[in-house]
């Protein structure tokens, strides 16, 4: 009973939050305020699904509850790419590529990185998650340094654009971008939907999965490719979210009390969306745009995760 409550309760919560977000203080202005907010809400929904799916699936493949794509260096690569674009092409890069060209290039870049990870993860047929994690960490640190350097080199005007990437909020979400991203994510979700039982089997680990007749390498490549697309979309919509994925996935496991992806994926999405709506609402109303969604989220999720680790004495 309580399990059902948790499963559907989160969606009720999301619905309530969404309605509140749309209508509170809108003056019921259906001509301007509400359509604007609707776009933002859609962007939040898409980003939430991306973060939730990417994190949960990645944790299934890696067999570890602390790793998320963000920690493995995906976001660092994205940020470096954006910084390089602005350094090399200046503010014109935006005009030149357009928003879509940029997202498309980012997706290609992420796919390339996914492919690299895949090569590394299964060298000699052994699952080298920890080695790879270290690699991701070092890469992230190197890239963060590069990004900082580039930030120093560019003018304040360009910096504010870059900051837009680094600390994206949903305010600038364009309806067209939301629609494209939405379609892309819907496609990915459809693919994932068809492989739900397969994901459950993958969570048993490589050996057991192969023993149950799974073409392991192929399945994992497919999932990693999907993750790449999801991370690219979410990073271009919200910016880096670092530890949000860990937070969302672990809260989900605790609430869902099962590891079946049929349950965990939708639930994680709901939790991610709720979190993003709350953060966005706080940014708009409480902080008056004086902070950003990613800062708030990193703050809350990071603190939560550290306390979780300490309280449970680390099931890491």
């Amino acid at each position: 009973m309580s399990r059902l409550l948790a499963r559907y309760g989160v969606w009720l919560l999301v619905l309530a939050l969404a309605l509140g977000f749309l209508l509170l203080g809108s003056g019921l202005d259906f001509a301007y305020v509400i359509p604007k907010r609707l776009t933002r809400l859609a962007a939040i929904g898409i980003a939430g699904v991306c973060i939730a799916y990417a994190s949960v699936i990645f944790q299934t493949i890696a067999g570890n509850r602390i790793l998320t794509p963000a920690i493995m260096g995906y976001e660092a690569i994205y940020l470096l790419f954006q910084a390089l674009l602005i350094l090399l092409l200046g503010t014109q890069s935006l005009v030149l590529l357009g928003r879509h060209g940029n997202v498309l290039l980012s997706i290609l870049l992420m796919l390339g990185y996914s492919w690299l990870i895949h090569r590394w993860l299964f060298r000699n047929g052994r699952n080298n998650v920890y080695m790879l994690l270290l690699l991701g960490l070092v890469l992230s640190m190197v890239m963060a340094t590069f990004t900082q350097f580039i930030q120093l080199k560019i003018s304040p005007g360009e910096f504010s654009i870059l900051q837009g990437f680094n600390y994206a909020s949903f305010n600038k979400a364009q309806p067209a971008q939301v629609i494209y991203s939405g379609l892309l994510v819907a496609l990915v979700c459809l693919l994932v939907q068809r492989t739900l039982p397969l994901l459950d089997v993958l969570s048993l680990g490589r050996d057991q999965a192969i023993s149950l007749g799974v073409d392991y390498l192929r399945s994992v490549s497919l999932q990693l490719a999907l993750i790449a697309v999801l991370v690219a979309v979410s990073t271009s919509l919200v910016g880096p979210t670092a530890f949000m994925g860990v937070f969302v996935a672990n809260i989900t496991y605790a609430l869902a009390r099962t590891n079946r992806h049929r349950v965990t994926l939708p639930m994680a999405s709901a939790i991610a969306i709720a979190l993003l709506i709350i953060a966005q609402y706080l940014v708009e109303q409480l902080f008056n745009y004086n902070t950003s969604v990613s800062i708030l989220i990193n703050l809350v999720c990071g603190v939560y995760f550290l306390t979780l680790m300490v309280r449970t004495r680390g099931s890491a």
Partner: peptide, 14 residues
């Protein structure tokens, strides 16, 4: 052919 290795460490909720 079915194979059983030692049960995975990952605490599965199943």
């Amino acid at each position: 052919v079915a194979t059983l290795r030692q049960a995975p460490e990952f605490n599965l909720r199943l």
